[in-house]
Design a protein around this nucleic acid. Structure first.
Lengths: 127, 127
DNA sequence: TATGTTTGATTACATTTGTAGTCGATATAT
DNA sequence: ATATATCGACTACAAATGTAATCAAACATA
């Protein structure tokens, strides 16, 4: 039905805490967001509602409250967004993006070994 | 002055062609965008104006027309956006983002060799 | 039971964004 | 010189977004 569930920045934050742990009541979400964001409870409720309307969240009633949960997987979302991002900003080429990142942030030894592992895996698959 | 020049998607397209080649008149931009986008000339002009107001573009008058040019470098912008993106979607870890990308798109042999080159460079610098 | 509390639903409202249209001044063509 | 095309400035306007407040129903409390 919904083609592209456009998720706004604020909505994303809400979705993010639900990805971390769900189902959760709106209040759970409010509480967990308090760490990161300084949002009014009403604001969070609004965002939850919008995400439901967009088909991004589902819920079940538990007595009078709702238990919310994501309808889309974090991995699916991040993969799609990443493809999009790389295509828009880097003409679809991943290496320049990594280069820019590495040049702006410091790569940890672990980052590098993870990247090497990825490459090794790729090479085993394609040769 | 302007803290974070929030650049919208549509605005980005305009900025993008100016990064490719500048300075350029509004009409140059309109023409070059015709390939990609199906935007009315007036729309493009509006976007140019908004980018100027946001401090993202500058211009010089050439007789009656303006010659626009970017005030921020593509590299600076993409680096910042990338850091942001990776931090939001991947808790700041680059490897998972590359993994997701690789898993969604096909990495070319060249992508891989570029990544390897990056890593080699990193290793030479940090050991 | 009367009252305050909590929940989701609905409404609010300024700002940003997408997507142009109008206007006044200038440049160009006849 | 006059009509017209063009340019940037300003205006328009609906949808999305950020950020809540209000309202009605259900609960909990005194």
């Amino acid at each position: 039905m919904q083609e592209k569930p456009e998720i706004s920045n604020a909505e994303f934050e809400v979705l993010d805490v639900l990805w971390d742990d769900h189902p959760a009541t709106s209040n759970d979400v409010v509480v967990r967001l308090n760490d990161k964001k300084d949002w009014h409870e009403k604001t969070v409720k609004t965002l939850l509602g919008r995400l439901v309307k967009k088909g991004v969240l589902g819920f079940e009633k538990q007595q009078r409250q709702y238990l919310y949960y994501p309808l889309i997987a974090r991995e699916d979302y991040t993969k799609k967004e990443t493809t999009n991002f790389v295509s828009r900003l880097f003409k679809g080429k991943i290496a320049p993006m990594v280069a820019g990142f590495a040049n702006q942030n410091s790569l940890s030894k672990q980052d590098v070994s993870e990247l090497k592992a990825l490459i090794k895996e790729w090479e085993q698959k394609n040769d």
